[in-house]
Design a protein around this nucleic acid. Structure first.
Lengths: 238, 238
DNA sequence: CTCACTTTGTGCGTACGTTCACAAGCGCCT
DNA sequence: AGGCGCTTGTGAACGTACGCACAAAGTGAG
């Protein structure tokens, strides 16, 4: 969200953010297909597997180039390669995870990272009982070594899985040490320099969005109590 | 994404999805302010705290009604109440969590749920060693009891924190048992009836999006190797 | 070679989201 | 009471995204 230059490069290059956000989904669907031995796939099939409509899929892929064959479809392996390349997954990205509570543990043990080119190179936690223990093959470093770990492993991407109270401080230290992308699981809005990219994952927010839609469904006539209350308030109040 | 009726109700009612997604962020910022003893806040201040621009914030809030005072700002407590009501957080939402690996543990222990009206009423897992143990004050039920637990607690929202392989099966069972909103942490595209709302949280996808932007930054002249390669391929290939 | 069929890639209309900029409204000071 | 300064609420312009529908381009049969 920080960087969203659409018009870079000579020929109107630059892929829309919405498309970038879907590419990983396509990639996963393609990997599944490849595992099943499928070698060629049509936009219709792939779109179904990825849960989008086929026109959108084709338009998304067209931003990468013209990698399909009319009348046939897309070569699965080739498309996997092209999308991976576009996303920068043909190289390995060293990652540091800060905070190893249940969530940090889950992240450290999640196989989906390594298989996509993300290498968890360092784990950092403030808890002395945790420091020195090994999680998913990596030894936990003390918080004091954060900067050293980042520099030593040339970490570009940091994952914050700490309590909210210390998240901003961790973010500041990560940025100061050279990290330029942060995945933040703490429920606060981080403030970072504009060249640093932050993405937020917030489970509580997702639940609240579900609650909103759920509440909507409860109203048989299409209007829920809160709407009636609001109309009433408006009619009287102002 | 399933339900997106913008034009419900008599007077062009219906809040844009983009706005709904931001309301929980505002809510959190407001709660923090309230804890700090702040009673009134301007759109500018609140926007800064929420990490958005103030015009957007005001437009978002205007969808709920006219709850500010010109020349003054918004009353913090009143706005908290109005947003909570709009999101349906003035009632309690019973939730079931399926899958209690590290992620499920993290979710079950996360205090941010309970404080927002979400009550974790049931925990379900397939692992016999886990069944019967207590996590965050709730006893883990066997997978076979999934439907019974859902019905017994009138669960409307289900959280899937299982391995991808079983997620679709769990989703089917949740839906059959009456759940109408699902928060899915498994890295697959769930297929559910259209009236069921699904939101997806996928950490691997977020990392891949970061990698894309990170890769962009590496190119000093604004063009990365992959772009040059693509242009070349196009120039020759077709 | 030609024709029928399939599927991609994209131009275009529409809907949605964001931002600017300002009129309307409120409180305070004199 | 009146004027001044501040902040909201919103009309309007802009930019982005979506999805239809079709031309372009490929395959395979006869």
């Amino acid at each position: 969200m920080t960087t969203s230059d659409r018009s870079r490069g000579p020929r109107g290059r630059g892929i829309p953010d919405a498309t970038v956000a879907r590419l990983p989904v396509y990639l996963r669907a393609l990997s599944t297909l490849a595992d099943d031995g499928v070698t060629t796939v049509s936009s219709e099939e792939l779109a179904t597997a990825a849960g989008v409509n086929s026109a959108k899929l084709r338009k998304d892929l067209s931003y990468l180039g013209s990698y399909g064959t009319r009348g046939v479809g897309y070569d699965v392996d080739y498309l996997v390669y092209q999308i991976s390349r576009e996303l920068g997954l043909t190289q390995d990205w060293p990652v540091v995870i800060v905070g190893l509570g249940h969530l940090g543990h889950a992240l450290a043990n999640y196989g989906g990272f390594a298989s996509r080119g993300f290498a968890i190179r360092a784990l950092v936690d403030a808890d002395p009982d945790l420091v020195g223990t090994e999680i998913a093959g990596t030894t936990v470093s003390p918080l004091a070594d954060l900067e050293e770990q980042v520099r030593q492993h040339a970490v570009a991407i940091g994952v914050i899985a700490t309590p909210a109270a210390v998240a901003q401080d961790i973010a500041d230290r990560l940025v100061a040490a050279g990290v330029s992308s942060i995945l933040n699981f703490a429920p606060i809005v981080l403030s970072v320099p504009s060249q640093v990219e932050v993405r937020k994952v917030d489970m509580s927010i997702e639940l609240q969005i579900l609650a909103f839609h759920e509440q909507r469904k409860l109203a048989p006539g299409g209007r829920v109590a809160s709407e009636l209350a609001r109309d009433l308030a408006e009619a009287i109040g102002r």
